[in-house]
Simulated assay, not measured.
Amino acid sequence: MPARQPDLSTPTEYTARRLVTIQVLRGIAALLVVFHHVQEQSPQFKAIWPTEAGQSGVDLFFVISGFVMVYVTRDRERTPTQFLAMRAIRIIPIYWFYTLCATFLMLALPQLFRSNELSVRHVILSLLFIPHYTEAAGTSPIVKQGWTLNYEVFFYVLFAIAMAISVRRRVLLAAAVLSLLVAAGFSLQAAEISLGTADFYLKSIILEFAFGMLIAQIYLAGVLRRITPAVGFGLVFIGFISLFLLDPLYSAGTRAAVYGVPAAVIVVGALAIENREKSLSVPILQFAGDASYSIYLVHGFPIAALRSIWKHGPFPLSGLGSFLLFLSVSFALSVAFGGLSYKAIEKTSLKFLRKRVARYL
């Protein structure tokens, strides 16, 4: 007798045991990205702490994403179509909402958008998660940090295809394809051959999904239970320190090694702690983790508005004191607006769509 399909209206992320530590890491990843974007508001801010390591929050997100996709599909009978449907209703509605918000704001307040393009082509391709180039924004979509979602969607589709071929071998198949794509990218770069925007999918950063998937495999096999909490905390500390120490070696070609490997070490350490029935439970970071997707999408709006206010207010866009104040207010506004977005838009749309999609799949 075939196994019964699980109720699709049940949130996949919460059906499996909820990993508090992973949520905390999501919150930290979101705040790292906020830190990175605050630095970019002023050359003087950048000079205070000239590091690019804040962008490693993206790499931490990617490792976690690879882990979560394997973790939430363990021992489940969902089809690849069902898997993709659940991922689609998770990421698309709120991303489209903020893409359209940014489009209307570009019409009404163009001064808030220093480097973006308002065109029908740019809007449509951004909504469809298709990498493309514009003169003003480069390869960034309307919501600039949405470039990472182009990778996420690609990974979801690849993972679903791997599931369709073999659920048991989905990790091996997906990891093999990711590795081959990166190898092809290095080969083409060495030969000085460019495939245009297709090069987007040949960057070393996509290996970070493979790191996360492999971590999930060893976690589910119980291997991480052998690591003591003290070692787990040590790995988390070493991982975060490494993000900043290795930062000078960062480039597009070294990203997986410079940021991805430390991010993987952080995730392993956090899971080792979780395995001992403890967690890195910090309420504000756990809340930021729950709202991390909304924070990631929305934080550019308050930071852009804050920069405009700062520019015409009593505080200069220079100096350590001004930077720390700008950063603190940016953190507070990003978490506040992200939390509001999470509660009012993200959770509401997810609850509404799950029940309706479940009727057809």
Rank of each mutant, 00 (worst) to 15 (best):
R4D: 13
D7R: 15
D7I: 04
S9M: 11
S9L: 03
V20H: 06
L25Y: 03
A30C: 06
F35Q: 01
H37I: 01
V58W: 02
L60G: 06
S65R: 02
V72R: 01
R76Q: 12
R90E: 03
R90L: 02
Y98C: 11
L100C: 07
R114W: 13
S115F: 14
S119T: 13
L125H: 03
E135D: 10
T139R: 14
P141K: 08
W147L: 12
W147K: 09
L149I: 03
V153G: 03
Y156H: 08
I161K: 00
A164G: 15
R169K: 15
R169P: 08
R169V: 08
V171D: 03
L178Q: 04
V182N: 08
A183N: 10
A184S: 15
L195M: 12
D199Q: 07
D199H: 07
I205N: 11
L207K: 00
E208C: 07
A216C: 13
Y219E: 08
A221D: 15
V223P: 01
L224D: 00
R226G: 12
I227D: 05
G232Q: 01
L235A: 01
I238P: 04
T254G: 13
P262F: 06
V265D: 01
V268N: 00
L271D: 04
E274C: 03
S281G: 05
I284D: 05
L285Y: 08
F287Y: 04
V298L: 10
V298D: 00
P302Q: 05
S318R: 05
G319N: 10
L324R: 06
L333E: 02
I345Y: 02
S349P: 01
L350V: 02
L353D: 04
Y360C: 09
Y360E: 07
